[in-house]
Amino acid sequence: TEIRININGVTIHVRDASEELKKLIEHLLRLGADEKEIREVLHRWEK
């Protein structure tokens, strides 16, 4: 699944996002995570 996240005008594009990762990101956004925090989570997730 491919997702695009727009945070304050900055688009983060994620290829091959699992449903689990998608739910995690949606949850973090609801909690008010910023772009830097989302990128950090994505970076750690890929490892």
Rank of each mutant, 00 (worst) to 15 (best):
Lys23Asp: 11
Leu24Arg: 11
Arg4Thr: 13
Glu20Arg: 04
Arg4Ser: 15
Val14Thr: 03
Ile38Pro: 00
Leu31Ile: 15
Lys36Ile: 11
Leu31Val: 12
Arg30Asp: 13
Asn6Met: 09
Glu46Gln: 15
Ala17Lys: 02
Leu42His: 01
Leu31Arg: 12
Lys36His: 11
Arg30Pro: 02
Leu31Gly: 12
Glu37Phe: 13
Ile3His: 10
Ile5Gln: 02
Ile5His: 02
Glu35Cys: 06
Leu42Asn: 00
Ala33Thr: 11
Gly32Tyr: 01
Thr1Gln: 13
Ala33Glu: 02
Leu29His: 06
Leu24Gly: 02
Glu2Trp: 00
His43Thr: 09
Arg44Phe: 12
His13Arg: 05
His43Ala: 10
His27Ser: 12
Leu29Ile: 15
Leu31Asp: 08
Val10Ser: 09
His27Ala: 12
Glu26Asp: 15
Ala33Gly: 06
Glu2Thr: 10
Thr11Gln: 12
Glu19Ile: 07
Ala33Ile: 07
Asn6Trp: 00
Leu21Asp: 01
Leu28Cys: 06
Ser18Glu: 07
Ile5Phe: 02
Thr1Val: 14
Gly9Ser: 08
Asp34Lys: 07
Trp45Ser: 05
Asp34Ala: 07
Ile25Gln: 00
Asp16His: 15
Trp45His: 11
Arg4Lys: 13
Glu19Lys: 08
Thr11Asn: 10
Ile12Arg: 01
Ala17Asp: 05
Glu37Arg: 11
Glu40Asp: 13
Asn8Gly: 14
Ala33Tyr: 11
Arg44Tyr: 15
Leu29Lys: 04
His27Glu: 15
Asn6Gly: 07
Ala33Trp: 07
Ile25Arg: 00
Leu29Thr: 08
Leu28Val: 04
Thr11Ile: 13
Glu2Val: 06
Thr1Met: 11
Ile38Glu: 00
Val10Glu: 09
Thr1His: 15
Val41Leu: 14
Asp34Cys: 03
Glu26Leu: 11
Asp34Arg: 05
Leu21Gln: 03
Asp34Trp: 02
Ile5Cys: 04
Val10Asp: 07
Ile12Glu: 02
Leu31Lys: 13
Asp16Lys: 11
Arg4Asn: 12
Glu40Val: 02
Arg4Cys: 07
Ala33Pro: 02
Ile38Met: 05
Glu20Met: 04
Val10Ile: 11
Ile5Ser: 02
Leu28Asp: 00
Trp45Arg: 02
Asn8Gln: 10
Glu19Gln: 09
Trp45Lys: 02
Lys23Ile: 10
Ile25Lys: 00
Arg15Asp: 12
Lys36Ser: 10
Lys22Gln: 13
Leu24Asp: 05
Leu24His: 09
Asn8Val: 05
Leu28Gly: 01
Ile7Ser: 05
Glu46Tyr: 04
Glu35Thr: 07
Glu40Gly: 04
Glu40Asn: 08
Arg15Ala: 13
Arg44Gly: 14
Lys47Pro: 11
Glu37Asn: 08
Lys36Tyr: 10
Leu24Glu: 13
